[in-house]
Design a protein around this nucleic acid. Sequence first.
DNA 1: GCTAAAAGTTTTATTATAAAACTAAGTGGA
DNA 2: TCCACTTAGTTTTATAATAAAACTTTTAGC
Lengths: 171, 171
Amino acid sequence: MPISEKQDPFKRSISHVLEIIGEGWSLLIIREAFFGVHRFEEFQSQLGIARNILTARLKKLCENQILERVPIKEGAKRHEYMLTTKGKELMPVLIALTQWGDRWIFGENSEPVIFMDKEHNEPIEKIKVLSARGIDLRPREIMVVPGPGSTPESKKRIEEMHRRLSSNGGA
Amino acid sequence: MPISEKQDPFKRSISHVLEIIGEGWSLLIIREAFFGVHRFEEFQSQLGIARNILTARLKKLCENQILERVPIKEGAKRHEYMLTTKGKELMPVLIALTQWGDRWIFGENSEPVIFMDKEHNEPIEKIKVLSARGIDLRPREIMVVPGPGSTPESKKRIEEMHRRLSSNGGA
DNA sequence: GCTAAAAGTTTTATTATAAAACTAAGTGGA
DNA sequence: TCCACTTAGTTTTATAATAAAACTTTTAGC
């Protein structure tokens, strides 16, 4: 993996996630898993991914507990790859990515797929950034502050960022 | 880019997005842009990215209209990179990724950064998948159907997926 | 006009990915 | 039980992407 901002927690906040799921095929493998694909050969034929790369990605996703290798049935030596809870909770990321693509690549009324509320059989809401009061926030209405996992350096970095944004009108 | 599922719209739905923003450093560049970084040298020093790669990524992000090259001031030949509306609308993706990392990598109370509602100075809500009725949906309560941009093949693929999931109890 | 920084290019080395052939173990049927 | 087929990989070799570092060219400030 090329991307390694070892320095401060501020930077690790996203880059560490990307080290786990940001590689080439990882998110596509996760998507297939959401859609019921669980076996090596199925991943391979659905994605057209090289088998050695698939091996490496599955291994890594398992190491990071996004997928879990489980025996096909009681005591079998052959296994399949199932999403863990950790993996399933990537759903919002996947949907947010898809909806962004629907809006900006495919266009408002040509989405290839629509996500549905299974129980009520109706499309889900667009994913939004909401305030604690339930109001839809636009990018410029959002800022960032150091969390409990911050360090002096990351605080400094956030300071710097605030200076930058305020001297700028918030681009 | 290695990932190219040219086939059906179903697959393009996410993989096409990943072709635009899924490469190595792209999302980190976009994150920096959100945080007020706009100049080549700043991106470079903040991220520690190789300069030739930065050049390539900035070029691609501009080509895809996520960033925009604008002159530093009226008529200047030197320029900076600003997020377009299209780029800014990646905010939910970035936040969803960050929040997933906060929960599953850093742990519930050691987030490096917290996203805030600027106006009210309070943390934003967690990003969720909501039904049209405003109810928080869990992964297994979500399904997918062909959209207006689907084709016979993608419909077939979705059929297949439904069979798979129903024969399986919805993993 | 001089100096330093800003924004890239170019070159070379390293690493990741792809394609295809190969292997070993499990499975299903005669 | 044995044979053929599938599954789940590994290995090898070729190709492409990325990194590091040095080099070039503007350009802003003094």
